[in-house]
């Protein structure tokens, strides 16, 4: 067990070093922080709300991640396939699972790091009012899990192609569906003609209701289960894609 953890960490470490050896990491972090600031303070009207919470900040994350997470993760497998290092990686004495998890964890840590750098928003909120710390923490937890779910989708689409752009577009489309499925205008559209069970199934795929629970300070087991199963399903999908790639 410790050996497989070690392998996962070796792969994750390599990915992380790869991020910071190229300008990708710095560009990503700067853009992530700039956009966060813009959305929170300009579009979110943070100051006019008069609320001591992070809603004006967190509410944008599903949309922000929609583009930024696929951008961060699109190279994970596509690049290995393009350069041919996939052959190197998969002939090493590790299981495909360890490689998939290692890459996923690396990129997740990286995004979490970028998210951590938004701490000035928290400090500002605490300075201006007296927010509930627990709610802020669950908000961040939800945001990390949301990013993890998008990232798992991106890992899967990245394994499907050797072209990073295609991988990016595919994952944006899938993640967009994960947002829209539970969005009221969309569910309203379905309610008019579809049976209720179908509406429920479709909307249960959405990240929105699960994410908003965290924003309200609720850590519901069902929400954890939702994000956990999206991640597990997509990583499993990745292993299927990788296997079919080699068997073809």
């Amino acid at each position: 067990m410790s050996e497989s953890l070690r392998n996962i960490w070796t792969i994750a470490k390599r990915e992380l070093v790869g991020y910071f050896n190229s300008p990708v990491a710095y560009v990503f972090i700067v853009i992530f922080l700039l956009l966060n600031g813009f959305f929170t303070f300009m579009l979110g009207n943070y100051f006019l709300r008069g609320e001591a919470n992070l809603n004006a900040f967190l509410m944008w994350h599903p949309w922000l991640y929609l583009f930024l997470v696929p951008a961060a993760g699109m190279r994970l497998w596509a690049e290995e396939r393009r350069v041919g290092t996939l052959e190197l990686l998969l002939t090493m004495p590790i299981s495909a699972w360890q490689a998939i998890l290692g890459k996923f964890v690396a990129c997740w840590i990286f995004i979490a790091l970028a998210l951590f750098l938004t701490f000035p928003v928290v400090l500002t909120t605490m300075y201006l009012g007296s927010p509930d710390v627990g709610t802020m923490l669950t908000g961040y937890l939800g945001s990390v899990l949301l990013a993890g779910a998008y990232l798992a989708v991106t890992v899967m689409t990245s394994a499907m192609t050797r072209n990073q752009v295609i991988s990016f577009i595919l994952s944006v489309v899938i993640c967009f569906f994960l947002i829209l499925a539970g969005w009221e205008p969309v569910t309203d559209l379905l309610v008019r003609w579809a049976p209720e069970w179908l509406v429920n199934i479709v909307s249960s795929f959405s990240v929105m209701p699960h994410f908003s629970d965290f924003q309200r300070g609720v850590v519901d087991f069902r929400d954890l289960l939702f994000f956990g199963s999206v991640i597990a399903f997509c990583l499993f999908g990745t292993s299927v894609v990788l296997r079919s790639l080699r068997a073809a």
Binding site: R14, V17, G18, N21, S22, V83, G84, T85, E87, L88, T91
Partner: peptide
């Protein structure tokens, strides 16, 4: 020990 055909390496390292 395996050397694949095009000798791929991780170029960002």
């Amino acid at each position: 020990g395996y050397l694949p055909e095009s000798a791929p390496c991780y170029s960002d390292m």
